[in-house]
Write a protein that binds this DNA or RNA. Sequence first.
DNA 1: TACTACCTTAGTACCAGGTTCTAAGAGAAA
DNA 2: TTTCTCTTAGAACCTGGTACTAAGGTAGTA
Lengths: 210, 210
Amino acid sequence: MNTREGVPLIDRISKKERHQLLLKIIGQNPFVTDRELTRELKVSIQTIRLDRMELGIPELRERMKQMAEHSYDQVRSLSLDEVVGEIVDLQLDKSGISIFEIREEHVFTRNSIARGHYVFAQANSLAVAVINDEIALTASADIRFLRQVHLNEKCIAKAYVRSMAGQKGKAKVEVFTYVGDEMVFQGNFVIYRSTLEDNSEGGVQDADRH
Amino acid sequence: MNTREGVPLIDRISKKERHQLLLKIIGQNPFVTDRELTRELKVSIQTIRLDRMELGIPELRERMKQMAEHSYDQVRSLSLDEVVGEIVDLQLDKSGISIFEIREEHVFTRNSIARGHYVFAQANSLAVAVINDEIALTASADIRFLRQVHLNEKCIAKAYVRSMAGQKGKAKVEVFTYVGDEMVFQGNFVIYRSTLEDNSEGGVQDADRH
DNA sequence: TACTACCTTAGTACCAGGTTCTAAGAGAAA
DNA sequence: TTTCTCTTAGAACCTGGTACTAAGGTAGTA
C-alpha cells in the first residue's frame, strides 16, 4: 500500500469508487475528455479508458453524436407538434379524429400516469383544428378526466361540432377520448372563430388547413 | 469549358449553385461528412472545404457538438419541466404561485397567440402541485380563457385550495392566471388525491414535495 | 498573344480524441 | 514463490478534419 514514506493512502480510491465517480462526472458533464478525467481522478489515461470500457461509456465524440442525433429527432418531432396528437380524419365544421400515444415524456415518473394537460392538449388541438376558420381559439372548456391514462396507451380523440351558434363567433365542440373502447376523457369546448363575424375579410375562410 | 469530346457541361454547376446545394444538403442532414459531400456534389474534398469556409459552415464534429450542447441545455430545462411554469411560492394545501413566459414554441405561428393548452398546462401543473399528496391527479376542470395571451407575455398563475371535501379523496382548487393585472384565465379544478382515502398507507402524506 | 485572376484539385504536415494491442511493473493473495 | 488483478506506458492506427503550399485549367482582358 503506497510504499512511499509517511504518505499512507492519500486519495487512493478503489476501482469501484472510481467507477462511481466517473459515472457521476460524466453524468454531470458529458463533454469531458479522457485527458480532463485523468486530472480529476488522478489516474492514467489508460485507466480511464479501461474504466469507460468496463462501464460501457462511449468516447466523447460518440456521446456528442448521440446527443446531437437525439436532439435532432426531438426537434423534428416537436416541429410536427403544431398539434398535439396526429389528426387522422377531419371533416371541417363537422368532426375529427386524432391519435396520441402516451410516452415517457407525458407521464408522471412516479406512477406512469399521463399528466392531465397532455390529454387536454390533444382534445384542445383537435377542437381547434376541426373549426374551419383562419383564427380559432379556445374560449372555455368543461372537462372530465374519466379514468387515468397510462404509459404506452393510445388515446383516440373524437371531436364533434355541436353548434355553430348562428355564426355568432363561437362554436361548441364536444370531444371524447378513448383508450380502446373505454372513455377516458370528455370535454365541452367553446371555440372563438374569426370569420364572418363583424368584418368580412373575404375569402380567407378557405385557407389551407391540414 | 470541359475540353473533352462530346460531353459539354455535364453536371457542371456554378459555384453559387453548388453553395446553395451545399447549404440545402447540410440543412437536411447535418451529419454528413465532407467525403460524403464530394460524392453528392461531384467536386474534390478541397473544394467542399473551401466552400464550407466561405459559407461559414463548421466541420461535422463542431456541428454535432453544437447540437449536443443545445440539446443538453434543452434537456436540462425540460427536466425542470416536471411542471409547466416555474413555481415561485407554494403553501401546501393552501395556495401556490407559478410564472410561465410565453415563448415561440407556445404560440400559433400565424398570430403569435398562445395555444390554450399551454395556459391550461401551467394552471393544471400548479393545481396538482399545490395538493400535498403522494398522488394527485386532475379529475375534472371548468376553465375560461378570458383574453388571448401573446408571445413574450408572462403568465402569473395563482392557485387556491378551496375545499378539501372532508378528505374524501377530492380537493377543489381554483386557479387565476394574470398577465400584469389583467386576468387571462380562470379555472376550477377537481383534483383526486390518494392519501387518507380508503386504506391508510400510513405516513406517506409528508413525502418530499418541492 | 500574353498576362492576370479565379476556381479547382492534389498533396503534405499536423491535430484532437480517441481504439487496439503488447508489455511491463506493483501489490496482494494463494 | 507464483499467480492474479490493477495500473501504467507506448506504439500503431483511425476519423474527420485544419492549415498550407503548389499546380493546372479556364476566362477575361489588354
